[in-house]
């Protein structure tokens, strides 16, 4: 009942109408949906598991894609390890998406939490949190990730590092991304906390944390969702960049960025497909996600309606 009701409200909302009115947004949503579905159905639609060395045969290395002299068993060609590129892209996209979503999730939690506290409590605590954020902003994400990755590599063995590479990369990108959420949330909270509905809750004598979560937080989530969408694309690109530089995911479990790096070494010797196909996938995914984010930002901005 309540579910049907909320569906009906959603179908009648301004957001849905603005979605239907923008063909570009619908196309971006379709592309995103297609890539996400393909990525998460990878075990069903891939030809092999590219992460399993037992599946790889070195004699299959550097096969060209079909229509360029290749065969059906390697539709997009193969890389230097004899890995089917089509399967590797599916699995790599899945990995990239997982990293991107995890980064958005963790940086959002960290950023919202700190922003909420800084904005609502104010005073010295606010000053401390925001100065840390300012310092954080002076380091680019890549630098922080390189730093953390470098330290972790120095501390643990190579084999262990390959196992926890995903966590390292998620942690380092999240640490670079929380500031944006924190600043946005803090600004909105400082506006909301002086509104009379918050004062009404204070007159009742509700504890601070309850007012923050029940009253303030739901009213600052709009801009946060916009940042989250735009940051998803950014996180995927950052992960790809780090992997391209060789500090991201190892070549035993390649993400899109790792595949592009591997292909980059062979680009000049004529094996273009190892770079081009993962590159196109990455570009399409990030472009589609960013278009969705842009649309959401405009749709939620009352001044642009």
């Amino acid at each position: 009942m309540a579910l049907i009701d909320s569906f009906r409200r959603a179908a009648d909302s301004d957001i849905w109408h603005s979605f239907r009115a923008s063909p570009m947004t619908m196309a971006a949503a379709a592309v995103t949906l297609f890539i996400v579905l393909a990525a998460f159905l990878a075990p069903l639609i891939a030809l092999q598991n590219p992460f399993d060395p037992a599946n790889l045969n070195l004699s299959d290395a550097m096969r060209p894609p079909m229509f360029f002299g290749g065969e059906w068993s390697f539709p997009m060609g193969s890389d230097d390890q004899g890995r089917d590129l089509y399967s590797a892209i599916l699995y790599g996209t899945r990995l990239s998406l997982e990293v991107g979503l995890a980064v958005v999730f963790f940086s959002m939690i960290l950023g919202i939490g700190l922003g909420l506290v800084a904005g609502y409590v104010g005073g010295t605590l606010d000053a401390i949190i925001m100065r840390i954020a300012d310092v954080q902003l002076t380091f680019p994400a890549i630098l922080i990730a390189l730093l953390i990755d470098g330290v972790v590599r120095g501390v643990i063995s190579v084999k262990r590092h390959e196992e926890i590479a995903v966590f390292v990369i998620v942690a380092s990108i999240s640490l670079a991304f929380w500031v944006q959420y924190a600043r946005t949330v803090r600004g909105s909270v400082m506006v909301e906390r002086n509104k009379e509905y918050v004062q009404a809750a204070r007159v009742i004598g509700l504890p601070r944390w309850l007012i923050m979560f029940r009253h303030v937080l739901p009213n600052v989530m709009g801009p946060v969702l916009v940042i989250a969408t735009i940051n998803l694309g950014l996180a995927i690109i950052t992960e790809a960049t780090l992997s391209f530089l060789g500090v991201g995911l190892p070549s035993t479990q390649p993400s899109l960025g790792t595949l592009i790096r591997i292909g980059n070494e062979y680009l000049n010797s004529g094996e273009w497909w190892i770079t081009i196909f993962p590159g196109l996938t990455l570009a399409a995914l990030v472009l589609a996600v960013n278009l969705l984010g842009d649309w959401l930002r405009d749709a939620l901005n009352p001044k642009l309606r």
Partner: peptide, 14 residues
């Protein structure tokens, strides 16, 4: 209890 001035700000819109 208190009744506030601005009826557009004193009720949580969500």
């Amino acid at each position: 209890q208190m009744i506030f001035q601005d009826p557009f700000a004193s009720l949580n819109p969500r």
